[in-house]
Write a protein that binds this DNA or RNA. Structure first.
Lengths: 231, 231
DNA sequence: CCCGGTGTTTGTCGAAACGCAACAAGGGGA
DNA sequence: TCCCCTTGTTGCGTTTCGACAAACACCGGG
């Protein structure tokens, strides 16, 4: 097992921001840290929701799988956020599967502590619900996009969301901060990797994006916004 | 203004089930009852979330409107449920618009009372969060459907959901319990009214559904389930 | 260095679904 | 009763996408 975790780890993380040193100490002493490889599964859809997590570093991809075996990516979670907080909505099982889009570090606690943390620590429940609220908003937006927009607009929207959530400024634009394949993007936009590939090729010719294997850089975000709005 | 509301109104309604007579009395005395015509707006997307509601009777349709003016129906709310509970997720504005799919009766309270109710009344917050949890689950399902299924399957799924949530047993099957147009269904399934019309005509010929103007009856739900699964 | 697996590109083809348009059928109000 | 407006139907042309297929690029391991 690991030695004592340092209190500075949680000092600037949303749900714990209002707590004092001693409280953070208590919380850390109850936490289980863990490292996950890229592609590893943190928890699975339908399984008993026995723990909740805080993402310290990395990116989590939340996916659902259909009866037919197809995969749909619901959202990505950046570091510093809680996830797997089924208990907040009084669910007994996880509603989706959480994968690591790249190597990730988590802290986790038994779900039984959720209500205790909520009662004892100022701002903890508050932050948790805000997180849920934000995600519900995002889901809503996705529904509207899927229902009304064409594939081209949806892919543009998907790329923009990716660089917003996990973008890294690089020399010629903004790069998505974790490895993404065409397949991944197709699962986010609800289309096929073929269509994504074609479209990215076209955009690359127009100088809107540039991509290497598993890496995508948006060089002209403004154009992408226009495309997303339907020209 | 209306006279005193009767306590039996809330006795069997989810969020208040665990309360005693006196508590229900307190809550009712703070409530504002209101009747809405079919098609009336209860609250609008983006407006200040100043009240939360309980649907006593009727059906609420939750919709979002795109920049381009298209409408997408997110879900329907049956009577007995809380809605407009933005405060539970610490939102300051309503995330969507609530319309009445038919004549409806609501009680409502100032949003400021949400936290007071949560603290004071056993099971109130619990029920609220469960409701949110259920709706999040439904939204997730819709995302998966929109992303992976074809129009035919989505329309089948939409119809099944409608009769589950607001179905009324009639002589030759199960009827949707409020007026629905082809346009409405297209907004739920993310397609056009033309496609819906064609499909319903075809299904009517096959004896799966029967419809009159603004009324739809499913006569063979099992067949519809098969279609929804892709045959 | 070669080899296999994974990820990507590109082309062709056809079906699904949409837009347009014209028309039919009810229903409610004057 | 008549008229108008909303709702529903249907045919046709067009576009968009997905299915299939073949080949190539990149990467790590033996």
């Amino acid at each position: 097992m690991v030695g004592k975790l340092d209190e500075s780890l949680l000092r600037d993380v949303g749900p714990f921001r209002r707590l004092d040193r001693a409280q953070i100490r208590e919380i850390l002493d109850l936490a289980t840290p863990r490292r996950f490889d890229e592609g590893a599964t943190v928890f699975r859809e339908g399984h008993d929701a026995d723990r909740f997590y805080l993402l310290m570093d990395g990116v989590i991809r939340v996916v659902r799988t259909t009866a037919g075996g197809e995969t749909v990516t619901a959202l990505h979670i950046p570091s510093g956020q809680l996830f797997g907080i089924a208990q907040a909505l009084r669910r007994e099982t996880y509603p989706a599967t959480a994968l690591c889009a790249r190597e990730s570090l988590t802290l986790s606690w038994p779900m039984g502590l959720w209500d205790r943390f909520s009662a004892r620590y100022d701002g903890f429940a508050e932050e948790g619900y805000k997180t849920v609220g934000t995600r519900v908003g995002e889901m809503n937006t996705r529904i509207v996009e899927l229902a009304t927009q064409q594939v081209e607009q949806r892919i543009a929207g998907t790329l923009l969301r990716l660089i917003n959530q996990a973008g890294r400024k690089v020399e010629d634009g903004i790069e998505v901060g974790f490895p993404v394949t065409r397949q991944d993007i197709s699962e986010m936009a609800g289309t096929t990797l073929h269509t994504v590939s074609r479209l990215l090729s076209a955009w690359e010719k127009q100088g809107i994006v540039s991509s290497r294997r598993r890496h995508i850089t948006v060089t002209d975000p403004h154009r992408l916004v226009l495309i997303g709005e339907g020209r």
